[in-house]
Amino acid sequence: MNFAVPEECTALISALEKLLMQAEATAAPVDGSRSFFSRDLDSALEDSGFLDAAGLEEFGPMAAAMVVQEISSRPVIVEAAHSSFLRALALPEWPRPVAVLTGKFDQATRFLGVARSVVLLGENEARVCRIEGKDTIATAPFFAYPMARLADPAACLARSEVVADAALVRRLLLVATACELSGILKGALFSVTDYVKNRRQFGRAIGSFQAVQHRLAMCASTIAAGEWLARRAAVSGSLEDAVMAAGYLQESTSRILYDLHQFMGAMGLTLEHPLYRWSYRAKLLLSDLGGASRQLRDVAAITWPETA
């Protein structure tokens, strides 16, 4: 048992932080647009190799987990999780950004409008297909992610290839979701704590009220646990760890988001503060891969199998 972050991971994350800070400094200000995609940052992350860490001997899945958590904790939106796990470990030859469709292939999904590959995950097989802009139709930007659906799902399916074992793809996606969600929640938490330190009501910072402190502290405990469950799932390669991490985080998300929006008050309802870039991403991830309901039933079935 060793929780120390290896030096090479620390160095990688330190370099990543510099890139992210630069991107945040030069990004267009929050301008009232509801969905967002940092194309320049996405390309910079790809070019600099940060999204390949999982498949590199000197880094591996732990580094990938930390990369995804770090990127997701920022109010910038790029496709990092699918690329860092699914592409790096199962589809290295396929171009990114990578979008994923599970179950019904005619539904809208995140990053599809900017993706160059789409993974079509059924219960028994995983297929992948190259796509271009004309293959997709943008949908209403309810979530902070760029959302789109396939113009012709049947045609896409027809030209797709079986690429990997569906169970492997599902496990990698669960890890990706857990890492992305834990990073998003952590970023949102610290955005709100910054706000409540400075916002004064009744003559004092609202973050000094015990009612606010205790609920944010409860969020912090859950998010810290989720962060480590996600890292363990990335490193262990175990399906049990992957469904547990994703399920735990998905299960906790609604309660955490309620508190974070509550303490941000009306400011959190605006598109001028970036809280929605975390909270609406998290709202979409609630349902990823069947959501908490499926994940928690799955982890129970794996831990206590029927025949044991």
């Binding site: 929780f3 810290a224 646990a225 480590w228 469950l229 928690l296």
Partner: peptide, 23 residues
Amino acid sequence: RYRAGQALSACEAARLLVYRVVD
């Protein structure tokens, strides 16, 4: 099963945070 999964994940969440302190 869903509720068992909830309780199990709460135990494992606690385990990892405690392990981190022990580490």
